[in-house]
Design a protein around this nucleic acid. Structure first.
Lengths: 252, 252
DNA sequence: CAGTGGTCTAGACCACAAT
DNA sequence: TTGTGGTCTAGACCACTGT
């Protein structure tokens, strides 16, 4: 028996999370527009019945996410093109930070075609990345991912059975992440990604329908569980015309 | 007369910044290694003579930067491949978040070749991005950037004179960012970037020495001042073999 | 149980901007 | 001087982990 909060499936939101999501929604819905000043900290304290530190935490998260900026002595303001995010999302498929790498961003039905699923002896470089012994068993998975039956990425994935046990062809054909989170109950918390461009190779010509002159966008990823274990090393080659990657970054 | 801190040019570091940089340096120097547990909050409070909230802020910044992870009931630990960052930096040129987009990452001498520098009437789409009127004056700058006289990126930059006045050919030939920050005294604080791959075009063949089969990595950027003003819209086409972009992202 | 982080308070004092 | 955010305290209580 678990103790549940009133609201159906919400995981017992903290105060700062409530302030964060409320404010974010007000920005996204256009209630606050580009350049608008947000309520000052004191007013938000009042409204939510909390201390300044709590409001500050919520607002600081909005700063980190690129929704607002703050200036000492002046106030907190909506950052340009936060309300009309569409401007940056004209493209078909976009991946922001981590948020929904393994979901369909829009409507599309995602499916997979498994080109290879086998166990191999871990080569040294991958073993080091995943923190396992050289020559330890390693899943070697090669898939083509489709959205609405249109191929858009070739994904080479390596995972260690000692970290993620029990992977089957069924799982590989649908969603590994779903299996990890829902069946194994593990938490995926972060990832390091490196993006680059490359000429397409024969596999991309065959599977993605590209020509010699058309490139792929390569995303190399190391993904981590909440206990710090790197559980996945993957190299994805995306159709150049169907994929963009967006980030927001702050200077410190 | 300004009040200065003891240490030469340091801008009066806060306590959490001191803890953050100290700890980060201990990780980078290998004093703390992958998986090592960091001192618990109470111990750090003791050492620095500060409260828990201050330590927490410093540690939370390390989490956001991908150096450590923390687990309730267990402790704070160095995230894999934080100490040996070289693993991810084998490539020639890398751009992390914002940190040093306009510096030489390694040794290289950076120079510019200006292909075009003129004023134009702002087209509607760019005007909207930069928050200016349609047909307002706009700098139109096209440059090739070299590292050690080797071209690696073609950069198309748009800025509004009403935001960044007084740009000259001299400035464009060296560093616009340097002019903005040091001459105009403005602060550049954040940027939104979108990365994609594209086949190279004639300009890239001529200026970057690429062939038809070789792509470019395209980075579209909107950069902001500390008052929230978007001051730059740029499209950079990088040699695919000399440029990678790395990010770390957390799930929330 | 003890060890550890996570959230939160109710202030204090400082820094910066606008008036 | 007033309005605003930035830093910091010295606690409190809670949640989770492992013994």
């Amino acid at each position: 028996m678990k103790k549940e909060n009133e609201s159906a499936h919400q995981p017992a939101m903290t105060k700062y999370m409530r302030i964060y999501t409320d404010t974010k929604n007000l920005i996204l819905s256009g209630h606050y527009r580009d350049g608008d000043q947000l309520p000052e900290e004191a007013a938000v304290c009042e409204k939510y019945g909390c201390s300044r530190m709590t409001v500050k935490k919520a607002y600081d998260m909005l700063v980190a996410d690129g929704f607002i900026y703050r200036k000492q002595g002046q106030g907190s303001f909506v950052l340009s093109s936060s309300s009309n995010r569409d401007g940056m999302e004209l493209q078909e498929r976009e991946l922001q930070g981590f948020t929904r790498s393994n979901e369909s961003t829009r409507n599309g039905q995602v499916s997979s075609k498994v080109l290879r699923f086998q166990l191999i002896f871990a080569p040294e470089d991958i073993a080091e990345i995943l923190g396992i012994e050289k020559n330890a068993p390693l899943y070697d998975i090669l898939r083509v991912r489709n959205v609405d039956d249109r191929p858009y990425v070739i994904e080479q994935t390596y995972m260690a059975p000692q970290t993620i046990p029990g992977i089957t062809l069924d799982i590989v054909s649908s969603s590994i992440y779903n299996y990890i989170e829902n069946e194994l109950g593990l938490k995926i918390t972060s990832s390091k990604k490196t993006m680059s461009a490359e000429p397409s190779d024969e596999l991309a010509w065959a599977e993605l329908g590209l020509t010699e002159k058309e490139p792929v966008l390569v995303v190399e990823q190391i993904a981590y569980l909440d206990n710090g274990t790197p559980f996945e090393y993957s190299i994805s080659k995306h159709r150049y015309d169907l994929f963009k990657f967006s980030t927001y970054s702050l200077r410190r």
